[in-house]
């Protein structure tokens, strides 16, 4: 035992220090102590009321308000520092939100928001489909293009997540904080890959199920408009007149929808005849009719993949 430990060890009553401390005896309580206390209780105020339950409404409201403010502040800070963009959360600008509410034309998106540190054109990729899809070949071509874009976007997302993980580990190492060992990192990445695989499998199954439905509709002679196959961006859907028409179409009963599609085909047929008259008619009337196009024909959808 060191001198310090010995000096700070327990005090033995038989030691010189113990005998000295033993001399510090406490006197007894004076007689009638209990009676004096009991007498003192006579003049005491009434017992304190039981404390209020923890879930007092005012206290709860205060906590809610503090929580909401804190959440708002955190959200604002995250948006301001660009964290949400880095993790792939697309925040609409105030102008976009306003245009969605008022259904007015949104202002052009500033160039600074388009980059996000991604490969050029990564998020601007769109699938272009002209006109309705009414043959199995056209449908399979649409699927092929969609798959192409999906692959590309999936790779970009994976690359972004991997880069974020690498950056985080690197930062921890630089700051001298505990970082996963190479083995542990390998395990984590394996688990991440397994998770991705499971998620992709589930998505593929759902997608294939939906595609089968499209194939059946084509086989049944139905025409598909691009919006049936490719989900349009919400803000774009509200901005385009045809989007609003399609929205209305979706809200119709099956009978009404079939009737609307039939009328649309008749109009298209009629316009087609006007644009490409029969040979005898062409001889009689050589001028090419400039028939007005409908919104559906004007539409060149540029939408993100499913």
């Amino acid at each position: 035992m060191s001198d310090i430990d010995k000096n700070a060890g327990p005090i033995v009553p038989d030691s010189a220090l113990g005998r000295s401390l033993g001399a510090y005896t406490a006197p007894d309580l004076s007689g009638g102590f209990a009676d004096r206390i009991i007498a003192a209780t006579e003049g005491r105020a009434a017992p304190l009321p039981a404390s209020r339950p923890a879930g007092s409404r005012w206290r709860s409201a205060r906590r809610l308000a503090v929580g909401a403010l804190a959440a708002g502040a955190l959200g604002t800070a995250a948006a301001a520092t660009g964290v949400l963009e880095r993790i792939g959360v697309d925040l609409p600008s105030p102008a976009e939100v306003w245009s969605t509410i008022t259904r007015s034309e949104p202002e052009a998106v500033p160039a600074s928001r388009q980059g996000s540190g991604l490969p050029s054109g990564a998020l601007d990729t769109r699938i272009e489909i002209e006109g309705p899809v009414d043959t199995p070949e056209e449908l399979e071509e649409v699927f092929r293009r969609v798959d192409e874009i999906r692959e590309e976007r999936r790779d970009i997302r994976r690359e972004r997540v991997d880069r974020l993980i690498d950056d985080a580990i690197e930062r921890r190492r630089e700051q001298g904080l505990p970082a996963p060992t190479p083995e542990r990192e390998e395990q984590m990445r394996e688990r991440l890959d397994q998770f991705r695989e499971r998620r992709d499998t589930t998505r593929e199954q759902r997608l294939e199920q939906r595609r089968e439905e499209y194939r059946e509709r084509i086989e049944n002679g139905e025409e598909l408009v691009p919006q049936d196959i490719i989900r349009e961006r919400r803000e774009e859907r509200f901005q385009r007149p045809v989007g609003r028409r399609l929205e209305r179409l979706r809200e119709m009963s099956p009978e009404e929808r079939r009737d609307a599609i039939r009328r649309f085909r008749e109009r298209r047929e009629e316009m087609s005849q006007q644009l490409n008259p029969a040979p005898e008619e062409r001889d009689q009337e050589p001028e090419v009719l400039q028939a007005p196009q409908t919104d559906a024909f004007e539409m060149q959808p540029e939408m993100p993949p499913e």
Binding site: R36, I37, T41, R44
Partner: peptide, 22 residues
């Protein structure tokens, strides 16, 4: 002073007993 402290401690028990009982 020690008696005062002991008495005050006991009286606090008397005052706070309803809350302490919870």
């Amino acid at each position: 002073e020690a008696e005062d402290i002991a008495q005050e401690a006991m009286l606090r028990l008397w005052d706070h007993a309803p809350r302490l009982g919870q």
